[in-house]
Nucleic acid binder design. Structure first.
Lengths: 240, 240, 240, 240
DNA sequence: TATGAATGAGTTTTCATTCAT
DNA sequence: GATGAATGAAAACTCATTCAT
């Protein structure tokens, strides 16, 4: 698992550069406002070369979506593996928020990306709905069985849906809460808000532990170290 | 307050027809995929005439945003006025969800509309942040003072933010929750989910009343009548 | 029947100009080497305007094919109506050759136009195969019944096919016979060659008349007059 | 004279493979739709390598034209050598038709290949006009002197031209005669049609022999054997 | 010989906007 | 108010060809 932007093992470094630059520009200026010419020019590269590596603009977005979904699924699996430690769960939450922030153009323009784009819709079904949504629901239900959450199965299911919606909405519209776009701040505030959202559903037995974790700043050395393990080197390569 | 699509009192009926058709097409096909030529053709009208009434495509969106914000602010005032009756509050919630659904293209593509669009950004600041967000927060704090909500001021503030995010996310991405696009269903499910979201924060004294309202179907005659008063004639004019 | 380049009654003069210019450029330089930019520039017109009148380059070719087929079918009907006069038949033959010469790019590049072009293939089936080919066969069989041709039905059927192939081949590759591209010369030589091709199949009773017509030059006043009636004013508008 | 695709004796087998693949793809998909990248990919070869062996796409077509013309001239010489046996003449005719079918893209798109292509035009002059056309005319005139054809020198000259045009048209547009693209069928029907075309010009003394040959199927062992000698090994190398 | 990434001019097409009538 | 033809800049994408290795 080197770089999540590599679609297959051995993808060319140029394709990787194109994907990275596209991600950066899409995030900064909006996918709509970034043309293939912009991307190529940004990389001091000919359009022809860009199209040598990707068959279309859609193909680039598709590849980005792929790598977004891949890592998202992996993070979900991590959360599942670490679900007995609240501290580690929060670290994963941070990593998820950071990841969504890294690919925020997808969350911000997914609605405008979908109409009349069969391929992306298909990917969306596969990743977002079938994997991510199912994974989050499953995680929440397990946490309920572990005793973390109180409430009926139906209630926890709904909680999972709301959690996912809030997560995405937070990333897509941080400015709605009067937030400027400093990455770390978005992640930290996001964590705080999501934890606040979950608080009423935490079982009494866990509340003390929950408050301890919730009030801890992101800078605790242990968390940082763990976070490093999760989100480490490859992120540096992807995000501007 | 006849039609919320009129920018000023006495605006031409043609401009109104243009705005209505644009809203319909934007919602159905995505703003990105609807050209000014489409709109004009849809109205069996010349492009030139369209540009006689609106100075640009952006101007149309601006007008739609205006009318969206106007009614939104009015609904918020209604909620404030009716905040002593849970039944009526829910009616307003329905009206808000319906209104957001009517203008869903704004919620779905706001992120992709903003970059490099100073005017829209300004409107956004004015309406969404200064009015709507402030209004919701203020409403929630008043409801807290009325005894409906339990929690610290900070907690209720956060609740208001989450409430607004969830509302918007629910409208913008109904498919994320496996929801098909049947308007009435979206509204009804949205109400149910938002109430479920609020439930943990309802003070014990109100819980019985809350459950009564939450379990009531949308078809209770009284509610319908009230809803009619709220969402009445102008909606018929706007929505196909 | 004003101009065969008008697809419907009342087509805009600009669309007509585009079609005419395209026909001229396609004939002169080959469809392959003529871009929509060339056409627009040739008419001192913006590309956008060209695409306002035709939805694609294919659409232009389609329109040309349409008008080619329309007039071709009409000429065939004329031939049928005049089949009792050899003189008049020859006049129609001239008109057909002239018409094919006017649209020679179609005959020259039909093979390269077809692959992967469903619409044109369909038009081709409709016009060339179902109308023209059937029409020529039917004409030849009637002429056989009139006593002009000798031979079995099968033989005359084959004669009709060969006649059509020769006609097209003559227009498509006049240079193959060492012919320069002077329009009138192509037509006159084509007529002579096609008549020579038919000669062996003429029944003895008609041979004297046939030779008289075959040896007559194209300039006989009567023929010219008749030809004028057939191929008259609209040709001037179409062909450079 | 090993492979007609070798431009000089001893040309590299790679160049040969390129020419063969190009021929195949041009025939199947039309020269217009086959890019040099297609050809290279089809051969699992790099573009660079293709351009090492041929200086341009035109160069490939040129080479194909060369080998087409070479074999055509050779077949014509064969026809001349065998002109005293009708049976053998027909075998040569079959070989010619097969050869033209093997290179049908040239006949189908010659018109669209010529404009602005000086080299090809030159080749065309050299092969088609100076050699093939002259050769066919000379053959027909000799056959006239041998007593096979009746008619004036001028008439036989015209017959030769028509024969060549029909041959090419038959190959270039088999669909024009409602013919599907099965190679053997095209050849067989072509022979039948061309013989029917010649029939009226056969001198009475030869008619019995002519009918015998014309009605013989292509499968007579002797013919097949002879055909093998004519069209043998090199065809296997050229055609997919 | 061979590779394959890179080039760049060109192609079709789109669309917000203008303008003469 | 209304028409609709016209504009032009820019978008996505293609492809013959080159070049460093």
């Amino acid at each position: 698992m080197k770089s999540t932007l590599k679609r297959k093992t051995g993808i060319s470094p140029t394709a990787s550069r194109i994907a990275q630059a596209s991600l950066q520009l899409f995030n900064q200026q909006g996918e709509r406002n970034v043309t293939t010419n912009h991307i190529a020019r940004h990389l001091a590269m000919s359009t022809g070369n860009l199209y040598y590596h990707f068959s279309s603009k859609e193909d680039i977005i598709q590849a980005l979506y792929q790598s977004y979904g891949d890592r998202m699924a992996w993070l979900l699996a991590e959360a599942d593996a670490r679900r007995h430690s609240l501290e580690e769960l929060v670290v994963v939450l941070d990593a998820v928020l950071q990841h969504q922030w890294d690919y925020r153009f997808l969350l911000q323009s997914s609605a405008s990306l979908f109409p009349f784009n069969a391929q992306l819709r298909a990917s969306y079904q596969k990743f977002e709905v079938e994997q991510i949504a199912v994974g989050i629901e499953s995680l929440f239900l397990k946490l309920r069985e572990d005793g973390l959450f109180e409430g009926s199965v139906a209630a926890i299911r709904m909680l999972a849906v709301h959690f996912q919606l809030l997560q995405a909405a937070w990333i897509a519209h941080p400015e709605r809460a009067g937030q400027s776009a400093a990455a770390d701040q978005v992640v930290e505030d996001g964590r705080r808000q999501l934890l606040a959202f979950l608080r009423p559903h935490i079982a009494p037995a866990w509340q003390a532990a929950f408050e301890r974790v919730a009030s801890a700043s992101a800078c605790l050395p242990a968390l940082v170290a763990l976070s490093g393990r999760l989100a480490g080197s490859e992120r540096a390569a992807l995000c501007y």
